[in-house]
């Protein structure tokens, strides 16, 4: 796995569950791996002032986001002894119950894979210029802010 090469992170719309299964299958030939850690972000049907979220419409400052994703990867590879790491994030509309973020880290041992996965998720939430418009069932909206 070439960790230096920037990778395409954004996918249009929801991340299909099949992509997760496919990613797991792709790693079965890498027998130096002993542990995978996977984080999946799913759209929650929050209720805000009596209205229910139906979907989130994601947008991003894509050029900067790709750069920041790359920097997070570089730092993660220097901090953790991981074999590989994959990140996918949605752009556009993702409905409640669907997946918007997929982080997949692999290592020889579980602790490193889990810590690295957690690191990626926290860094992505804090540093990547991605914006989310929460669309309610009545088609009004508000802007999501990470806590």
């Amino acid at each position: 796995m070439d960790k230096k090469k920037p990778k395409k992170v954004f996918v249009q719309g929801a991340i299909p569950p099949e992509k997760i299964a496919g990613s797991i299958a792709n790693h079965q030939s890498k027998t130096n791996i002993g542990a995978h850690s996977i984080f999946l972000g799913q759209i929650r049907a929050d209720e805000i002032e009596g209205k229910t979220v139906a979907a989130i419409d994601y947008s991003a400052y894509e050029e900067m986001a790709e750069k920041v994703f790359h920097e997070i990867r570089e730092t993660a590879f220097s901090k953790f002894d991981i074999t590989c790491a994959h990140i996918y994030h949605s752009l556009g509309t993702v409905k409640t119950g669907e997946l918007c973020l997929f982080v997949f880290t692999s290592s020889a041992h579980r602790k490193i894979a889990i810590e690295a996965c957690n690191y990626f998720v926290e860094e992505i939430k804090a540093k990547v210029p991605i914006f989310g418009k929460e669309i309610f069932e009545d088609e009004t909206h508000q802007w999501k802010v990470n806590k």
Binding site: G41, Y58, A60, Y61, E63, M64, K67, H89, C100, L101, V121, I124, K125, A126, K127, V128, P129, I130, F131, G132, W143, K144, V145, N146
Partner: peptide
């Protein structure tokens, strides 16, 4: 704000710069 994709504001702008106005991040 990001000047040429870097989060910074204590910088003097020069011709051709790109300045992005970013609301709170909401990825994940």
């Amino acid at each position: 704000i990001a000047v040429n994709q870097n989060l910074e504001e204590e910088v003097e702008l020069k011709d051709g710069d790109e300045v992005a106005f970013l609301p709170p991040f909401a990825g994940g």
